[in-house]
């Protein structure tokens, strides 16, 4: 039996070990070629998840495509290089937030620096021209989904609003 492995870095400490088996039946004369192509592609991708750069780049590109505004990408990237284990939570929370608000709502991913103490963390600011009455309820709903995921991570992240006008 031939086998090839590749790896994808996740950051879900709470998740138990799982095994999912999936059988794929292929047309006999195509099976061999498809397998060989898959094997080469996977082999060449082996390193892909040992690095953190590709996942950060993919994540930020995806967020921009989904309409998340990132006014200072360099700051956000540097934070994610420092705390790569929060990237998946940030991405999921940003997309969930995008889905909860109308397109005219600006979602801005920024690095917040506390002026009082030496602390910084990523923040997704929700900004509207006219604020919805229930905005804090929606934020709390989103936060309930993701706050537990952040407990064991090295970095920090917040979804909030500063009630500012979209920039």
């Amino acid at each position: 039996m031939m086998s090839t492995k590749y790896f994808e870095l996740l950051s879900i400490p709470s998740m138990n070990k799982q095994v999912v088996n999936q059988n794929v039946n292929l047309n006999e004369d195509r099976n061999s070629n498809i397998y060989e192509v898959a094997k080469v592609w996977i082999k060449e991708s082996l390193s892909a998840n040992v690095d953190i750069t590709s996942s950060i780049e993919k994540m930020l590109k995806n967020l921009v495509l989904k309409g998340i505004y990132i006014p200072n990408p360099e700051e956000v990237k540097n934070y994610l290089y420092h705390y790569p284990d929060i990237a998946d939570v940030v991405e999921s929370a940003c997309i969930e937030t995008r889905n909860r608000f109308k397109p005219s709502t600006q979602l801005s991913l920024e690095l917040y620096r506390d002026p009082e103490i030496d602390d910084e963390y990523l923040t997704l600011y929700i900004r509207q021209k006219e604020y919805d009455d229930n905005i804090m309820d929606i934020i709390e709903d989103i936060w309930l989904i993701y706050s537990d995921e952040l407990v064991l991570r090295s970095g920090d992240f917040l979804v909030t609003t500063d009630f500012d006008y979209p920039r």
Partner: peptide, 15 residues
């Protein structure tokens, strides 16, 4: 936690 995907060929027709 790392997700590991393994592909096994099971001749003649299964992957």
């Amino acid at each position: 936690i790392v997700q590991e995907v393994e592909m096994q060929r099971q001749p003649p027709n299964n992957m």
